[in-house]
Design a protein around this nucleic acid. Structure first.
Length: 382
RNA sequence: CGGGGCGUAGCGCAGCUGGCUUAGCGCGCUUGGUUUGGGACCAAGAGGUCCCCAGUUCAAAUCUGGGCGCCCCGACCA
């Protein structure tokens, strides 16, 4: 990707109303754009990170045996009345009427909808256990949205639901998810702690939350719940067991605030120059900086390296702007791209320079070795 | 919802106490030139419903009232 057609806009100064580090840096690096309070657009760089985090989540969810689906954000209020959560959720839900005067809402979570799906299809003990998940936008009319993407009214969430025959089996599903969560956050480069927590409106018997380390007070990035049979009894999610009797399924639910994870990663990994992305979630693995864009030879070498990397499917951003070296260096640091490939004066010795963002170590290497260097870096990060 | 703060160019701000018609500054943007390894320099430019409405006044960014928006602190949540 070339910078000049990738819609990346950086700024020197953070927005005046930004308070937390992640909010400031995401704005400055051009990752997000605020529409109104608590509602944000993800710009190309922000979206790339969101996708990388989502990919990691998908891999681990699939590995744990969960199956991906996609449920609607738009839901009938009647389902929520059935589960008795309509009043409980109260004004946190965005509720309205459709043209037929039916009460609708934008889903703040999906226990009701997923239960409705499962009760339609799961009839026998042979269909269980099952785990369903989705990565989808949630809507909560927060009393006070704050800290940018960290607490917003629309946010991307991975929500997973487990359905089991017995408490013992539900416990197994719960533990599987807990393991998966630890892997996910570790792969995202997050350090975190696990606490037992209040189940809140979700309800259920027991829950634990994953809290990211960092200096922001809201940091809950994941929450897993043992729901028991509360929902299945209210919503009549039952199966016929081996002995021919009907039993309510035992449920669990497991959430990760995907957009919040992105902010949490930044909160835990930055310096005075900007973001420091872990390789696993960086929007680009590397950025090519040409010191002098008016030097035809240098530019030619740069394009060769760029095309070479692209053909090897190595993730690279080419900073082809007509800007001074200082501007490009500063932006490369701000964006937090793990490796900066600088093409300039060392070309005389047939070498280019690779700067590692995190350690600021400089490697002078031969042009032909760039691919190898980056490939190894990716391998070592896994 | 209670408490506090803010709203002036794309962004960051000054001006408001003591009203004066061409509303400034820095960054960014445009054009030309000189530069080219850590946010370069010179020159010329473009860009404003001073959040909105009403009032006071010869005159309002500035004073008064109302509204809207945004941020922070508290209770709720991924």
């Amino acid at each position: 990707m070339k910078w000049t057609n990738s819609f990346i806009f950086t700024s020197r100064e953070p927005p005046a109303d930004a308070e937390t580090i992640s909010q400031k840096l995401m704005h400055q690096a051009g990752m997000i754009d605020k529409l109104v309070s608590g509602i944000y657009s993800f710009l190309p760089l922000g979206l790339k990170v969101l996708q990388k985090v989502s990919d990691i989540i998908r891999e681990e969810m699939n590995h744990a045996g969960a199956v991906e689906i996609l449920m609607p954000a738009l839901q009938p209020a009647s389902l929520w009345k059935e589960s008795k959560r309509y009043e409980k959720m109260g004004r946190d839900m965005i509720v309205f009427k459709d043209r037929h005067n039916r009460e609708m809402l934008l889903g703040p979570t999906h226990e009701e909808v997923v239960s409705d799906i499962v009760r339609k299809y799961v009839k026998s003990w042979k269909n269980l256990p099952v785990m369903l998940y989705q990565i989808q936008s949630k809507y909560r009319d927060e009393i006070r949205p704050r800290f940018g993407i960290i607490r917003s009214r629309e946010f991307l969430m991975k929500d997973c639901y487990s359905f089991d025959r017995t408490d013992q089996e539900s416990e197994q599903s719960y533990l599987k998810m807990k393991q998966a969560y630890m892997k996910i956050f570790k792969r995202c480069g997050l350090s975190f702690t696990i606490h037992s927590a209040d189940s809140g409106v979700i309800g259920g018997k027991f829950s634990e939350e994953f809290v990211a380390a960092g200096n922001c007070s809201e940091l809950e990035i994941g929450h897993i719940f043992k729901l028991g049979t509360d929902y299945s009894e209210k919503l009549n999610v039952v199966f016929t067991d081996k002995d021919g009797t009907q039993k309510p399924v035992v449920m669990g639910c497991y959430g990760i605030g995907v957009s919040r994870v992105v902010a949490a990663i930044i909160e835990g990994s930055y310096d005075e120059k900007g973001i420091i992305w872990p390789i696993t979630v960086a929007p680009f693995l590397s950025v090519i900086v040409v010191v002098n864009m008016s030097d035809a030879k240098t530019v030619e070498v740069a394009y060769n390296i760029y095309n070479d990397l692209i053909s090897e499917k190595i993730d690279v951003l080419f900073d082809d702007r007509e800007e001074s070296a200082g501007v490009k260096f500063a932006d490369a640091d701000l964006l937090g791209i793990p490796f900066r490939i600088t093409i300039g004066r060392k070309l005389a010795q047939g070498k280019i320079e690779i700067l590692e963002r995190k350690t600021r170590k400089i490697y002078d290497i031969e042009i032909e070795k760039v691919k190898e260097f980056l490939t190894n870096a990716v391998k070592n990060s896994k």
